[in-house]
Amino acid sequence: MLALVLVTIALWIGALDKLYQLFLAPDDLPLRAVAGCLACLAIVPVLNLPPVVAFIDGAGGGLARLLVNLMTMSASYWLLAFFQYSVRASRRFQTVAYVGALAVVVGVWLAAPASVRLQPAALASGNDWHSTVFVVAAVGYMAYALGLAMRWSVIYARVARRVELRRGLRAMAVGLAFLITGCVCKCFVALLQAFAGVAWAAGNLAYVSCVLIGSVLLVIGVMYPAVTGMLAAVPVWRWHRQAYRELEPLWQALHEAFPDLALRSETLPWWRDPLRIRRTHRDYYRRAVEIRDGLVQLGPYYPEAETEDAEAVKAALAAKAAGAPAGPPHPAPVAGGDDLDSDVRWLVRLSRSLA
Rank of each mutant, 00 (worst) to 15 (best):
V136Q: 04
C210F: 12
V219W: 02
G203P: 04
A103E: 02
E266K: 14
N204I: 03
A315M: 08
A177Y: 03
G14N: 06
R151W: 11
D28G: 06
A194D: 14
A25W: 05
L176W: 01
L38W: 05
V211P: 00
K314C: 09
P329S: 15
G221D: 03
A160Q: 06
L2H: 12
R245F: 06
R158D: 02
A101I: 04
I43G: 12
G203T: 10
L146A: 00
S265K: 12
M142N: 07
K18V: 02
T280H: 02
E266R: 14
T228C: 01
L176M: 14
Y144H: 06
S115G: 03
V189M: 10
L263V: 06
H130E: 06
M230G: 03
L11N: 06
A196W: 13
R287P: 01
A103H: 04
D27I: 11
H130D: 05
A160W: 01
A173Q: 04
V154M: 13
M230Q: 12
W237G: 06
N204S: 13
S90W: 04
Y141S: 07
R276W: 14
G336S: 02
Y141K: 09
M150H: 07
D343P: 00
A145T: 03
L63Y: 05
D17M: 11
E308I: 00
Q119Y: 12
A35R: 03
G229N: 08
W200Y: 09
R278Q: 13
V135T: 13
A89K: 11
D341Y: 07
L70K: 13
A124W: 00
V44G: 11
L191H: 06
M1H: 15
D128Y: 10
A173H: 05
L205V: 13
V334N: 02
A243H: 05
A177S: 11
D28H: 14
L4N: 13
W200P: 01
C210P: 07
Q297D: 10
G140V: 15
V234N: 04
D283K: 10
R292M: 09
P51Q: 12
L250D: 08
V154I: 15
G60F: 05
L66T: 07
V52R: 10
C183P: 03
L217N: 02
E266Y: 12
S76W: 15
S215C: 07
V159T: 14
L354P: 00
H281D: 13
G100C: 11
V154T: 04
R279S: 08
P50M: 10
A194K: 13
K314Y: 04
N204P: 01
R32L: 11
T95Q: 04
R161F: 03
A326G: 14
R32Y: 07
C37G: 07
A332L: 03
L275I: 01
